[in-house]
Amino acid sequence: MKSVEELKAIREKALKEMSIRDNEDKTRIIVGMATCGIAAGAKSVMSAFIDELEKRNIRNVSVSMTGCIGICRLEPVAEVLEANGEKTTYVKLDAEKARRIVAEHIVNQKPVTEFTVGAAER
């Protein structure tokens, strides 16, 4: 270790890998991964979320899974749960839509209304 900067660089990298264990003030993206979800392609949606967050170096958002939410016909389904309790349910997702949710909802804090369950049911 030749300098303090070197230490900081290691710290940044390691922090990124460990951020998943930090549960406070986090936005959570929960992907439905029951049989219905997986059959409809939930796995690639989930990977897209993880990948996009990673690319953008976003740390305060975690991605986890849940079972069947009960709207199988609209799968793949994901919920974005914000730290303030705000919940948005997105339906009929694919990898591309997942990336847009990260860009618009997570980064710019504008929910993508056209993908929400409300829009689909109309």
């Binding site: 270790m1 710290r11 460990m18």
Partner: peptide
């Protein structure tokens, strides 16, 4: 119970060795 004790990176992530620096 928070970090992997066999990983110096995880210790560094939790501000390890910053006090020495």
């Amino acid at each position: 119970g928070v970090i992997n004790p066999e990983s110096i990176e995880e210790y560094i992530a939790r501000d390890g060795y910053a006090a020495l620096a």
